[in-house]
Design a protein around this nucleic acid. Sequence first.
DNA 1: CATCATTGCACAATCGATAATGCACAGATT
DNA 2: AATCTGTGCATTATCGATTGTGCAATGATG
Lengths: 345, 345
Amino acid sequence: MEPLSSQNTIKYLAEHMGLSATTVSRVLSGQAKRYRIGSKTAKAVISEAARLDITPNKTARNLRLQKTNTLGLIVPNIANPFFGTLARHIESEARKSNYSILLCDSGESEMVEVESLWLLNSNNVDGIIVSPLGQTGSHFLELYKHGKPIVIVDRYFPDMDIPYVTSDNYRAAFEATEYLIFNGHRIIACIQGLPGCGLTTDRVRGYKEALQKHGLSVNTDFIVGDQYDQQRGYIETKLLLKRNPRPTAIFSLGSSMAFGAMSAILEEHLRVPDDISLISFDELQYFAYLSTPLTAIAQQNAVMGEIAVKMLLDQIESKDTFRDRHIMLPTKFNIRQSVKNISDS
Amino acid sequence: MEPLSSQNTIKYLAEHMGLSATTVSRVLSGQAKRYRIGSKTAKAVISEAARLDITPNKTARNLRLQKTNTLGLIVPNIANPFFGTLARHIESEARKSNYSILLCDSGESEMVEVESLWLLNSNNVDGIIVSPLGQTGSHFLELYKHGKPIVIVDRYFPDMDIPYVTSDNYRAAFEATEYLIFNGHRIIACIQGLPGCGLTTDRVRGYKEALQKHGLSVNTDFIVGDQYDQQRGYIETKLLLKRNPRPTAIFSLGSSMAFGAMSAILEEHLRVPDDISLISFDELQYFAYLSTPLTAIAQQNAVMGEIAVKMLLDQIESKDTFRDRHIMLPTKFNIRQSVKNISDS
DNA sequence: CATCATTGCACAATCGATAATGCACAGATT
DNA sequence: AATCTGTGCATTATCGATTGTGCAATGATG
């Protein structure tokens, strides 16, 4: 077979048909009428291009047009279904507008995140969607101020001008905590993720204010953890279970941590919800099938992905149709069986 | 702030320093000595480039070098942790060799898959890793024969020349089936995925030959299903549970289908493993935490991803160091509690 | 028959980086 | 002084597609 080389250029097609590359280009880009290309010529070009499977070289096109029709996506861990789902909807939404996705997995490492950011930038992506890791987003801000369209999803920076889409973390945490209180819980531990990032701050604030609203004191000893991962959840739960008094409920601010919590609880031969109640922020598909179906806060990550793309394209095409570029989506509280009502005890 | 426009070209840097773009290009690509650029000049270029944050435009570079340092990845569903994990390791392995990943989610649609393939090709990716959907891979073969490096992962085409990495599906299915037989099961249903694709064929063959080895007849009525998704697993299980005689065990050839099976079993108020045993091909992180920890066949998808990248780069760089370009990885059989020993009954 | 508008397409420059080639100039050699 | 060898860099063409402009040929008009 013939190699896919310079035989596939519109220049080749042009020579082959006795036309100029200009004409072919204009026909294939649908500008035939605008440039008064005869309709016989146009049709002939189209059919020959299809027959020989010739399509304009995207790299050359990108260079000339200063546009790549590519969006960069940086997520902490694509193997995490939360980000997987997000990525999936971002990809399909982008595809609708003829954009492709350049994927970077920051691997929960801020160094890799920064590196990825510059990588995407030097690849001339038209815009970047990022779910950042850390407390600081100065590298994003720098790029953004230089004019590169960016949208932040999930974790965000409240004091930063960059557009973002996230859940209404405060309200969700508030409601979940209230639910625990309504079920008679008084000592409620909170396993937080990375402190200092907007996401965590909002969730912890929701937790605290729910306690305060119901006259319960906030004991910061019961706000533990510092990382959104399974191991942190495991370790902190191990420690929490040794406390005296022991909390009657644990509110995990992330599903990975909830996972770690579950294995710690199991190891201590305790049971959910008989010995301890558990609620998870974030929900995974299988939560309903766990040994104790887990009560959880579900985020609309599909919607989040679509909105992120729309906001990004809005920036790229300079339409600026969004009045508010900081979007918070409502969450859904899925009550299952991991919380016990201990009001009577 | 200044926009990231033509100020960031090496041409600008060259004029700014009173040099030619050629010289700057050679210095920045580490070819200073080869082209006898003076060391003072070289150092000055490097430091100025760093100061002004100027880096060669990748698009122009790609055009000139006819190479994009980008690999295309097509998966059926990136939200599925199996593919998420695969993607993650592909990305990090590719990154080590300075390649980026252009992600396509075929959404379990063969039309989208074909479209994605041409999209990646027209984007001039240097190679493609694909986990195909269907029985036919003619579109891959066509591209491959035209010289585009391709590696197939997970699902594959046995009669096709394209390199692939997959698990030893036959052996894994054989062992799992034997395990059921050793536990006294005689009527073992098999929920298959898409029939006809190499993956399914191998797994079903393993299932059948294990039965035959132990003198059990293969009843094709108990080989059901036609799609690797949750709904198929649910529907087929619903039907299986109405059969007379009812199977005492179900071997699901995919985790999504196992998932559907679990929900069907739950709905019928039956229990795993007391009423029916269950084994899943593919394993997910949370299987150990399910109401009945699920016995499953774990694939080495991390390794699979790394090998896929290595085989692809091998093709791209025309090293051809692989003697055998069809790789089958061993699996791990994780025995938990979803299979009951009914030998005595 | 001369002028003019219209149709149909090509020329040349451009996007930014790279590679083959070539040309000055310094110092060394005879 | 004339030639030679190296050093240090610039000139120019190229990758493939796109765009403003321009130039023929055709038919219409007076």
